[in-house]
Design a protein around this nucleic acid. Structure first.
Lengths: 145, 145
DNA sequence: TGCGATTTAATCGCGTGCGATTTATTTTAC
DNA sequence: GTAAAATAAATCGCACGCGATTAAATCGCA
């Protein structure tokens, strides 16, 4: 088996890739109205959930490392979305805190996710189940790395 | 409702983002052994399925546009994975064909997808169902754009 | 036939993701 | 107490994705 040619439609990886790109295209214009990019928005969600996290903590939450986060956070700092300061107790680490713009945006977050929800489908239970399945997949994939 | 703070875990978009990143991390070292990146691999899959497609055709298949594809295809051409030539019948379009390296790699494609399948899970029926759900989501998201 | 509208790639700029490396700080071992 | 190991962030380079624009070829229609 598997001797015949692969097709794009059969690839789980392509489904993910394509759905993720589509999600990004959907978010971009909405987030751009607030001066945000997609990963910047995710950083804010993480900080709204718990303010004052180390870069490493954000990396664990988002599955990213400092090579991605540091430049991203610097751009966010320049936009007053977050602020960054060295941890007094351990100068190796950097604490990221919500900046003024980042706090204000939390009020509009619910509206943003409602926009997306509407585009994703009307059956919320279905979407939640799908999300769980995708999370499980991500967990398995990360474990195999 | 929805007055409380969002969490990353609740976001479908983050599940997708995270699973897609995880898939990329899994593919990268495998594909790197063949001198490929992840989107380059997807282009090859599309061409193995049907050789000699216009840039636009590939764009439709992959949900990408020339601003992404043109540089990507040029890199692939430099690596002899594909070749590009203007369409004689309509000089606006460019035909992309498998190059020597691109043809050879088809033999190893089955092995590549087996590696991924193993990491994604052992229940193939589950994975296929998940893939379908994600494809439907991508379709809905693209339709809302 | 000619000329504006359309189609197709290409170009440019910016913000990720990440492999690889570097720098700074803290911990550990002796 | 100090040098080696470990840890945290930053830096660098490269390949995407995509919004915006441009250039070239073709089409459509008066």
């Amino acid at each position: 088996m598997l001797d015949r040619a692969l097709t794009l439609d059969e690839l789980l990886c392509f489904a993910l890739y394509s759905a993720n790109n589509a999600m990004g295209r959907l978010y971009r214009p909405i987030l751009a109205q607030h001066g945000l990019t997609y990963p910047q928005y995710l950083v804010l969600v993480a900080l709204w959930q718990r303010d004052g996290q180390k870069v490493n903590d954000l990396g664990t939450a988002l599955n990213l490392e400092s090579n991605t986060l540091t430049p991203l956070l610097k751009r966010m700092e320049a936009a007053e979305l977050v602020s960054r300061r060295r941890n007094i107790e351990d100068e190796r680490s950097v604490i990221v805190t919500l900046g003024p713009k980042g706090q204000v945006l939390q009020q509009e977050a619910a509206g943003i996710s409602r926009c997306i929800l509407a585009a994703a489908g009307d059956d919320v239970a279905d979407l939640i189940e799908l999300r769980c399945k995708i999370q499980e997949l991500a967990t398995r994939l990360n474990a195999s790395g």
